[in-house]
Structure formats: structure tokens, C-alpha cells
Write a protein that binds this DNA or RNA. Structure first.
Lengths: 222, 222
DNA sequence: CGAGGGCTATCCCTTAAGGGTTAGCCGAAC
DNA sequence: GTTCGGCTAACCCTTAAGGGATAGCCCTCG
């Protein structure tokens, strides 16, 4: 779907953060890197959303704690507006709830502001390439959150479906909407719908709910 | 529960791994550290469990892939036997399912065998002190798993639903649309929607698909 | 080489789903 | 006897879902 930055063109980056000094710091940091280009910056969340939709940067660095609407809300609105680039939360908060909420809302990363500059650049580079980036110090936190969780997807292997259809079904059975599946598999929602349509027909089912139930009973989800 | 190792006494460590060479490697590594003491080692899971209960080491390093019973099962049995020390999984597998399963079963850490020796020692030390340790390369994986998490800060439970809501959920999990449920229960579709809305809220789920999957896993339709 | 299958994608259209709000009726609890 | 929870129902509104059709690209098989 959204083309990941090629190696030969710099990744475009937008920073939305209400601390001017910090913005300047990041800007200066990025000036030294020829594969990362800061294409915009603002301290106003509203303006930031508009900028993101206008500039379509590869990556948005989004402060979690801002006046008016917070970063999470901004993230939600970006996703709703079908902004397809990467969004990395950038904050001082290492509270589990914030991290979890951000990731659930569709953040592609969560970086703490106290990172070392070199690490910062490295992580941003990875993020622009499509990898999820998380500050290392949050690892234990994530593990803890995960630990309190139930059930996880596992290996399928059912007949008439193609590989892709099985993948779609697996996600579907996980309760994801077509839009979220699309985002996760990096294809358009329309394509997901095509796959869903096909697998429903092949399995002779009438809705995604039936498909989900069938998949679970078939052991797609453990 | 079990007192965390004090600074002045070495942390005791037991390794259960069916690779003798690897056990020797870890043993040698720990000989150089005066705050970590290897008190036992075995390649047999059964014997390992007995040893852990006998020696009560501060930390058990447990291989995930072993013959007979696997590491996960061993972990489960250690916990059931009220072994209160730390258990860190030690494996080559970086598959999401394995990591997630281990953490859910109560592992205090998950280390990959391809770690650098210095990192290994550092992580074991942290683990003995009670910190959860996870190989850094698994961070993105954890975040992804977390992201896919559905449901509930508090375990959703069937008992919070009214009789009618349970009935609706049962039909829903059978793959019926609101309209069909209405027809079947002889109420209007609007009313069905109200019930669905309420049960989704009570169970903290985001869609009927999630509700259906949950219900099936909970053994509703059977 | 040509055919077919798999994956992607788009357009158009209809129906389903879900959130918010308000409200009437009934039975049980206070 | 009034309040509260459960069940019913309707309103409005937005988004999600699914069906039909078409098509480009790539790979494989014959």
C-alpha cells in the first residue's frame, strides 16, 4: 500500500510537538542525516493533522502530551483520515497504559524523549523503513502487559483457501475490521474485502462472523 | 514471596537444558561472576523440576525446546508446585507464539541463545534481582502482539450479562445477523441492537466478531 | 507462447452494524 | 410507593461489510 521509503530517496518526516526547543533539537539532529528529511514541524495538534494529510510524510513523530487534543486523539484522527504513513509516538511517559493505548490505537512505534541522539536517529530510520520501534526500556513493561492477556493467534492449515486468504481469515478471526487487516498486511481495504469475499464463498459462509467462529473452532486461534 | 537476592550473597542459579555444551558454556560464563552461582544443571526436564524444588534457586534458566515435556510444561509444573523463584526461558525460538505463551504461563524472562555472553550475564543479574528480562530483538514482536490484543483490562465474564444478553450472544456466536436474531427471538431488530450494544460494552469488546470469538472460546455454542 | 491462478486494486451499490439518546412497561427491591 | 434494573422500542447518524464487475501484474504450468 504505502510505499516504504526507497534506499535512494530520503524519508520524509513531520514532527508534531508543543516544545519548540525539542523540535529544534530533532531538526538539527536530522540535518546531519541525508536519509531523513524533516518536511514539517508544528506545536499545534490540529495543524499537525492537517499538515500530515497535506504533506503525506513517510513518518510522523507525534508527541503524546499536548494541550487541547492529546497525541492519542491526534493519532486516532490521522488513522480515520486514512493517513497511511508511519506514526511514532514521542513522549516522556513510560506508563504502561499510555504505551498500550498508543499501540492499540495503531502507533507504529513508541519512543521516549530521553533517548540518546544516536539511538534516536537509528530508531527513526528503522521506523521509516516500516519496522516497529519501541524504546528498549519499555520492553519489560510490554512483556508485563502481554502477560495479563488472553489468547493469541496461531498456526492454521486449512484446505481450499489460498495462503493469503488464510492470512486474512486469521486476522478476521482475531476480531480485526477490514481496515485494520489492510493496515496490518499493508494492502488496501478494498483488497481485503476481495479476499474476504472469496473466502466466504469458498467456505460457503454468509458473514465474517460465521467465518470467525469457524476459524476458531478449526483451531486458527488457540 | 521469595526474597530477592541480597547484594552480599550470590544469586543461585539452576540451568535446565538438554544441550550439555551449552550448559557448560553458561557454567563457565558464570564462574567468572562472583554474584551469580550455578547450583545445579541438568538436561532432563523431570529431574530439573525436582532439582528446582529441592535447591530452591533464585533463578531457573529453562530451555523451551526439550524432549518429553517441553519447557512451557515444565514452567507450568514449577508454578503449580509453588516454586517461587524466577524462571527465565532460554531458547533459540523467536516466534511470537512461543514468547507470548511463555510470558502468559508466568515466565519472568525470555532470552535468546544467540546473545552475547556479556549481555547474558547482565540480563541474568537483572533477572535475579527480580526484573523481567527480554532479549532486545523481541521488542518489536512484543509490541505487535500487544497491539493485536483484544478485550479487557478486567477479565470479561459471562456473569455480568443479563439472561437476555446471554441469549443474544449465543445467537450472535451462531453467526446470525441482528435481523435473524430478532426474528428468532420474536423481538425487533432495534432491540437486538440494543442488547448487542450493551453486551459489547459489558465485555469490553469492539465488535460482534470479537464477541462471537470470545463466546466460542468460552464454550458457548457447544 | 498462451492460459489460468493468485494478488492487488478500483468503482458502484445495498445492507449490516454500532453509538447516542429517549422512553414506555413491568417486576422486584427498598 | 417510588426507585431501579431489565426488556422493549424508536429516532438519528456514521462507518463497516459484502456483492458484482473489471483489470493490471506476475508467476507457473502446459
Amino acid at each position: 500500500m504505502t510505499p516504504i521509503t526507497a534506499n535512494d530517496t530520503p524519508a520524509s518526516l513531520l514532527i508534531i510537538d508543543d516544545h519548540p526547543l525539542l523540535r529544534r533539537g530533532v531538526a538539527q539532529l536530522l540535518e546531519l542525516e541525508d536519509d531523513l528529511e524533516l518536511v514539517g514541524e508544528t506545536g499545534d495538534p490540529e495543524a499537525g493533522i492537517a499538515l500530515a494529510l497535506e504533506l503525506e510524510p513517510d513518518l510522523v513523530l507525534l508527541d503524546l502530551n499536548m494541550p487541547d487534543i492529546n497525541g492519542l486523539e491526534a493519532l486516532r484522527r490521522l488513522r480515520e483520515a486514512n493517513y497511511g504513513g508511519r506514526v511514532v509516538m514521542f513522549t516522556v511517559s513510560d506508563h504502561e497504559e499510555d504505551v498500550v493505548a498508543a499501540l492499540r490505537t495503531g502507533a507504529d512505534g513508541y519512543l521516549l524523549k530521553d533517548m540518546e541522539p544516536e539511538d534516536m536517529v537509528r530508531q527513526l530510520r528503522q521506523a521509516a523503513l516500516g519496522r516497529m520501534v519501541i524504546s528498549e526500556s519499555l520492553t519489560a513493561l510490554l512483556a508485563e502487559a502481554l502477560r495479563n492477556q488472553r489468547s493469541a493467534p496461531s498456526t492454521p492449515d486449512i484446505h481450499s483457501l489460498t495462503q493469503r486468504e488464510r492470512e486474512i481469515l486469521k486476522q478476521l478471526a482475531g476480531g480485526l475490521s477490514n481496515k485494520l487487516i489492510a493496515r496490518k498486511l499493508d494492502i488496501t481495504e478494498g483488497t481485503v474485502k476481495v479476499h474476504v469475499k472469496h473466502l466466504l464463498k469458498k467456505l460457503n459462509l454468509r458473514s465474517r462472523v460465521e467465518a470467525a467462529v469457524w476459524a476458531v473452532q478449526e483451531g486458527f486461534d488457540a
